[in-house]
Amino acid sequence: MPLTLPRRGLFALEILFWIALAASFFVFPDRLYLLTQILIAALFAVSLDIALGYAGILTLGHAVFFGMGAYAAGLLAKAGWAEPLTGLALAFVLCGLVAYALSVMIVRAGELTQLMVTIAVGAIVVEIANQATPITGGSDGLQGISMWPVLGAFDFDLWGKTAFVYTFVVVLALFIVVRRMLQSPYGLALKGIHGNRKRMYALGSPVEGRLRFAYAASAAIAGVAGALLAQTTEFVGLDTLSIDRSAAVLIILVLGGTGRLYGGIVGAIVYMVVHDFFADLSPEFWMFWLGLFLMAIVMIGSGGILGGLSRLVRSERS
């Protein structure tokens, strides 16, 4: 017998969730670096959820936008304008535009072709970043980034306090935007396309335009997540673009539950904490259990952590 939550209770739960996230600042003051990383991974996973969970675009190359945002913010800072918010804005716009251009190849293709196109674009971008050593630093990464204080007042400190608060505020703000977007009629249309594309065509919905916008929005937010990483760690490596990162974010999202808004965040918390816990073990060991876990999650078909929870707790609306 599932527990039933009143509609207002669900909203209160959301508020409580974010307060708990903010409170982690005081509970784990010596783990602020990990907490900031979790927030960034969460934002990245939420961005993927727009494309994958809501629009149903199968991608194994989302790290392209994460890395592109990171390089954009890092290069802007190195070029002499190290104001953090401008860096985020640049990453947002650049990734959005590039993704919108690329989306022509993606929205009409079948799943396998989507997968191949995103993998191929990822491989090409990594190779470009690797070859353009004078600009990107190649395999050494982009070093020597030094950010100005946030809003001209809060310097990035050694303990990562500013980094955490800054990341938290940006992630929360973007999350509210995404939440609003996905609960609007536009979000409903995306769900419709994911559920039955032919029927949405028949309803006169501009399917391709909607998908292209979703892909661009998803990429723009992924770019901001990357820019946050570049600004808070003051370093950008080639691995930000790699297919490993694309696969990791996919795993995070699926672990939390796709198409559920909070799936990416819950997945990021669990994945990063477990990864941090097992970091001392050999990478093969980690890979083996990750592989088995992925196989198990598909065979059991639980829909991730949130999917499992939703079977125990119902809200009044559904």
Binding site: L250, L290, M295, I297, V298
Partner: peptide, 10 residues
């Protein structure tokens, strides 16, 4: 995709 990636990792 997830299942087969898991198989590759394992």
């Amino acid at each position: 995709v997830l299942f087969t990636i898991g198989l590759v990792f394992a």
